[in-house]
């Protein structure tokens, strides 16, 4: 009924921790709009020239394109196979043993850098896959656990008897899946797609082994840039990436609330 009050000392430390979480983000945003050639906070003057600088740098723009291409492809493939798998697990729980579901969570337990290295060594080298294909293959695997897990969660509360009801009323099973099941798990699918997309868009550890000459993803490009240069253009890229995240978060928040999506 009524909220217990939190001990003021505990609350104060809690706020400090929250401030710690926010500080680097605020500082990066501040540094991105600073009108200086070095990273400054609080920003000195206000200028968007570093954003302009980023948009003019071919390497950033090209890698952003690669990133989007890889993220969209990997998410789509993972969605296709993950949706089937999640549906199979939920619908045929009697045939498929419960532990089978954890097969699809395996990518979460293997350190990404180990996976990237192993994938490079075996599949990529022996099949001589082009860089973009290699990236899509690797990202599909790291996206898959989010797809299966989040869609399974939303299927677990789905009442399969309405599916039977639709079939008994004369609807074809495939049409039932598309018009009855899918709309009912819409929010779960959206959340899964978003999480997978963000995971792919932010990935470094796997991509590190798969990028090749001339083809790179944005996080890799930023990562190598940061190791060599130290100017506000990286802050500007970071802010642009955060912008993508915010748009995506707003989408999820509007469809189902973030708390549920992340757990």
């Amino acid at each position: 009924m009524q909220q217990r009050s939190v001990n003021p000392v505990v609350a104060a430390i809690g706020w400090l921790v929250m401030a710690f979480l926010m500080a680097p983000i605020v500082i990066v945003i501040g540094a991105a709009v600073s009108d200086t050639t070095y990273l400054a906070f609080p920003p000195q003057g206000f200028s968007l020239r570093w954003f302009g600088n980023v948009l003019q740098q071919r390497s950033f723009m090209a890698s952003f394109q690669t990133s989007m291409q890889v993220a969209i492809s990997a998410t789509s493939i993972a969605l296709a196979i993950g949706l089937f798998a999640a549906y199979g697990l939920a619908r045929f729980g009697k045939t498929i043993p419960a532990w089978f579901g954890s097969v699809f969570l395996l990518p979460l337990f293997v350190p990404e850098i180990v996976f990237g290295f192993s994938l490079l060594k075996t599949v990529i080298v022996s099949l001589e896959l082009p860089v973009t294909t290699a990236l899509i293959v690797g990202h599909t695997i790291i996206c898959l656990p989010y797809m299966v897990r989040v869609i399974s969660a939303s299927l677990s509360s789905f009442d399969f008897s309405i599916e039977e009801a639709a079939v008994s009323l004369g609807m074809h099973p495939i049409k039932v899946f598309l018009t009855i099941v899918l709309p009912n798990i819409r929010s779960g699918v959206i959340a899964a797609v978003v999480l997978a997309f963000i995971t792919s868009l932010n990935d470094v550890a796997v991509s590190l082994f798969l990028t090749g000459p001339g083809v790179s993803t944005l996080p890799i490009e930023v990562f190598t840039y940061v190791e060599q240069f130290f100017d506000p253009s990286v802050a500007a890229v970071s802010v642009l990436l955060m912008g993508v995240t915010i748009i995506v978060m707003a989408l999820v928040e509007r469809t189902l609330g973030l708390g549920k999506a992340v757990k």
Binding site: L21, L39, I198, N202, F223, V226, V234, S238, T245, M249
Partner: peptide
Amino acid sequence: VFPLLTGVVVRSFGWMV
């Protein structure tokens, strides 16, 4: 949640700054 969805590079870069 926001930092969680922001990339590792961006978040580490924040501390470099």
